[in-house]
Design a protein around this nucleic acid. Structure first.
Lengths: 160, 160
DNA sequence: TCATATAGTACGGGAATCATAATATATGGA
DNA sequence: TCCATATATTATGATTCCCGTACTATATGA
């Protein structure tokens, strides 16, 4: 057993741990942000999460959304009822398979959401202004890889 | 009004938008990860969030935690009851002010949590291995600044 | 000493989640 | 074609959760 390791490897590991801790803090902060935004829109956290997934991953069926969000299908019925009643989404019955429903985000209330996220968007623009193009590309790539790491980890946990 | 802008500014803005989108995706992925981990520990999402804050920000009183987590004080009583019954935390009555209570995370079940996060930790280690020390430092700094941006945005929203 | 403020919690109403069952539609073989 | 089985979603009911209000205990300051 080595009692020491090269100094650069030690630094690498330590900075890596700092990054993982920073990611934890960032997650908490973003969760809190969503909680506040959701509160002002009279939406549960999970409702806003679903809306977010729908807005990013395009129209989805309830089953697909339930899988992506880790929720019971019956739970989604309740969530979708709320979102539909408040005018956030529409349920379209598919032509091909008339059992299936497609959830579509309505554009109407998009501006409300944007306005509430504006403080964060502005703060991020301030942060991003300090980096040059190469650095931004590095960061963007890191974030994408981290998301993929999250997907892999979720896949492994879903197994057991 | 300019109809065009310098090419590098355009790139900068576009990469910036990619970063903000990537941050959204990452947040969703991390939320899902926590949801799965929480499920395996029989903890609600919000319970795990509180535990996470407590583990990071050290012992806290219920009021301080409620503020940090954006929850009603009475809601926290229920959360703390669950966490206490399951052996995650202890409530200590303070000596100075005997009204106040300090919540402390018990170390006993820490290994369980670590094991469940292991897939993500491992996946992140793989990602981090591809960067040199200077790049890691850049990323760590960006994450800290983004967290601060989130704190500022939360502060602004809390105003209204 | 006493009025007021603060920390935490008990209680109750209304809502959310999820397991189960029900409905409607699709698919494939006899 | 007819029917058994599978699939997508939703209705129902039991349990649990969240939060507004009120209560207890303690602290603070006039």
């Amino acid at each position: 057993m080595e009692q020491t390791e090269p100094s650069d490897a030690r630094h690498h590991r330590r900075t890596g741990n700092e990054i993982k801790a920073a990611l934890r803090d960032l997650r908490i902060q973003l969760a809190l942000l969503n909680h506040q935004v959701g509160g002002k829109l009279a939406l549960k956290d999970v409702d806003l999460d679903c809306l977010d997934v729908l807005a990013r991953s395009g129209p989805l069926t309830p089953s697909a959304l339930a899988r992506q969000a880790g929720l019971h299908p019956a739970t989604l019925t309740g969530i979708l009822d709320r979102l539909e009643k408040a005018g956030w989404i529409a349920r379209d019955r598919a032509r091909a398979d008339r059992r299936s429903v497609t959830i579509r985000v309505l554009p109407d209330r998009g501006m409300e959401v944007f306005r509430l996220y504006q403080p964060m968007i502005g703060a991020m623009d301030d942060v991003l202004a300090e980096y040059n193009e190469a650095e931004l590309a590095l960061i963007a790539d890191f974030l994408r890889r981290s998301t993929e790491a999250g997907e892999r980890a979720n896949g492994e946990l879903a197994q057991e």
